[in-house]
Each structure stands twice: as structure tokens, then as C-alpha cells.
Design a protein around this nucleic acid. Structure first.
Lengths: 197, 197
DNA sequence: CAATGCAATTTGACAGTGTCAAGATTGATG
DNA sequence: CATCAATCTTGACACTGTCAAATTGCATTG
């Protein structure tokens, strides 16, 4: 189907697509610019015209991930058919399953590789910040509607809530919990602890 | 001080020590067998006589980390001078500060690098399992003494508790939270949520 | 229409990395 | 003293990311 022309035509897009697949298959650390080039049918350094770095490529992918993330999360946050309490539970449930089903992507988005050495793109920082900001906002709502305890500062509460979900997701994803851990039970237990009693 | 003899004498020990330093300086991913060799003053492949893999070396170091971890944790678990509630709070506080102060080591011990592809040594698996097992046991105690809610299954409760601490630690270590996050407040908020009310 | 410019792509090269196989050195043992 | 096995080194290979310089080809001028 594809001709081996000199000008690929939509290399940038092809690279992103291939990288996406590569991440899903073998995780972020399995992404190699050279293998990527082979897969797309182009020479080793062709990608450097569209991405200054390997890091920039990864940030672009992560950015993409955050946009999808935000869409899906909003779908729950704004679902008027559910009570606030049910939305909260659904959010927890969604967070865990989404993280597990897109484990490698989750690792890319929330992993240390990008954030640790402060190598994140400005765009990436922005969208990630927005995602968390929304979390804080929704936390405030849940407090208002009696789902979450009112006594706590909203920011702290959002931080700890997120910490819990993030931690559980990581422990499951990274294989530190045994594989057969019952996610439903864990989610339920987490909800019980976090919600106002 | 050190002669450049052919037989180093205690190479294994020197390698571990150097690797330890290297981790503290630049993190796990900065550990390179070749740099390690230079630092110890030995040739590139000398380490292979003591560690079959780079992975085995890392597992050895992680193992070491877990032993220290367990000692320090026990010091709190068994401190009779504190009430059970205070022990719980102290444990949370210790967990976070220890994780932050030994961030790179924490990443090695609890990071995906070792656990994800199931590359952990049998010894490492054992000690890690023991550490978690102790967590479950102590959780049961805390339930018994009214610090943690009795309604929850001890195993689930321990999982979620650990998830929370792990998640917060990771978010802080990986630089996803802003650096100036008030750890004390976060710990307090986490304690409030997790403890029985 | 040819020439020129410019963007897209390739080739070559360098410094890293982990790891295997085969050789060199040495302290200890018979 | 000779031998041996443990210890360490050298050489080599296949990877990685990335820079600089050449090449290719499309499009827009003169």
C-alpha cells in the first residue's frame, strides 16, 4: 500500500501513531527512535525533524493521553443521571480500570520519566495542571453535596484522594500487588474510607 | 590508599557501596555498570563475577533497602511509649519523610523497574512480601485498638492504606505535586481520612 | 521553463549502554 | 615448585540517542 517515496507525506502523524502502538505493546521504555523509524519505514534520524528529542515525542504522546483522560473523566463528572455519591464511586471505579487497561499510557502520563527531571513540555504541564485543577474543583463540589468530608481543605483532600487512587493504580500496574487482587473490593474499600461517614 | 592490584580483594562489597552512592546521587537509571567499574577502579565486566545481571545487582540493593525499611518501621510499630493512635500517625509521618529523603532508593524498591517484568529475585520477593505482611498484621492491630475502622477487611484496609501512602510518596517524589507541598498537612489529612471516626 | 531555494530525508559518525566469550593474572593448594 | 581455580581484563557485538553534513525532491520564483 505504502510507496517507498522520499517524502513520506505525513511522517509526524505516522510516528505518533506508531509510537502509540509501541507504548501499548511494550511500555514507554520499549519505545526506541530507531525501531520507530524501521516500523514507519524511514531512516533513523528522520524523526528529529518533527521532534527535537525523544523526550519531546513522549511529552506529545502524554499530552494526547491527558486530553482523552479529561474527556472521559468529564463524562462521569457531568453525568446528571447519577447522584453525586454514585458519581464519586463511578469515578473511583473508572480511574482504576482505565489506569489498568491503559497501564503503559498511565505510566507515561503519571510516571517519573517525564516529571522527575522537570523535562515536561509547557503544553504538557498545562494540560496536566488543568486535569488536577478539575479534580480539586470537583472535590469541592463533592464536599458541598456531602459526599466528601467538609472539615478538610479542598486542596488537601483532592491531593490525598488522588494520592490514594494513584497509589493503588501504581501498585496494581507495577505488579506489586498480586495480579488477582479484586479491584472491585479495593475500590469499595477506598470509597468507604474516603467518603464522609 | 588503594593499590591497583589485580585482585581487588572485596570487589563485591565495593561494588555495592559504589552503587549505593550512585543511586543516591542520580537515581537508579543513572547506575551504569561501566561507570561503576570506573569508580571502583576495575574493568568494565568485572562485576559480572558477582552479579549475573545488572538486574541482580539492583535487586540486591533493593533487598538491602527493605531490610533497613523493616527495621525502621518496627521501631515505630513496637514503640510502647506511644499510644496506638500516635503510632499510626507517626508511621504515616515516617513513611512520607523516609520516602522523600531516600527518594531514589524508594523508587528502586517500589518502582516498576524491578517488579513490572517480574524480574525480582526470590530473596527480594520474600523480604518485600514480609514487609507487606507486617503491614497487614499491624493494620489488624490498629483495627483491634480502634484506630482503624473495624468494618473493613484487614487485607483490603492494608492495601488501601498502603496505596494512599505509596501514591502520595510517588506524587511527591516524582515531582508531580509542586515541591512546596506541605507534607505535614498532607499527612494530617490522610490520617484523618483513614482513621476511624 | 529552468533555476533556485527550502523543507524533508538520509548517511556517517560518536559516545554511550549491557553482555558474552576468550584470554591474562594471581593467590592458594597439592 | 607446579598446578588449579578464582578473579579480573580485553575484545567484540548489538543496541541506544543524537549531532553534522550530505542528499533528495517539491514548489515557487525569475
Amino acid at each position: 500500500m505504502k510507496k517507498a517515496r522520499y517524502h513520506h507525506g505525513n511522517l509526524r502523524h505516522s510516528l505518533i501513531k506508531a509510537a502509540r502502538d509501541m507504548i501499548r505493546e511494550g511500555g514507554m521504555e520499549a519505545v526506541s527512535l530507531r525501531k520507530l523509524a524501521v516500523r514507519v519505514g524511514v531512516s533513523r534520524t528522520a524523526a528529529y525533524h518533527y521532534f527535537k528529542d525523544k523526550n519531546i515525542l513522549l511529552c506529545t504522546l502524554a499530552e494526547e493521553g491527558f486530553h482523552i483522560w479529561q474527556e472521559e473523566a468529564d463524562r462521569i463528572f457531568l453525568d446528571e443521571k447519577m447522584s453525586h455519591e454514585d458519581r464519586y464511586k463511578a469515578y473511583i471505579r473508572w480511574y482504576m480500570t482505565y489506569a489498568l487497561e491503559n497501564a503503559e499510557y498511565y505510566d507515561l502520563m503519571f510516571g517519573r520519566a517525564i516529571w522527575k527531571q522537570n523535562t515536561a513540555t509547557a503544553n504538557l504541564k498545562t494540560i496536566a495542571y488543568d486535569v488536577f485543577q478539575k479534580q480539586v474543583e470537583v472535590t469541592r463540589q463533592w464536599q458541598k453535596y456531602g459526599v466528601l468530608p467538609v472539615g478538610e481543605d479542598s486542596l488537601r483532600l483532592a491531593q490525598v484522594t488522588w494520592g490514594t487512587l494513584h497509589g493503588l493504580a501504581r501498585l496494581l500496574i507495577d505488579g506489586i500487588y498480586s495480579d488477582d487482587s479484586p479491584i472491585d473490593e479495593i475500590c469499595a474499600c477506598a470509597a468507604n474510607l474516603l467518603m464522609d461517614k
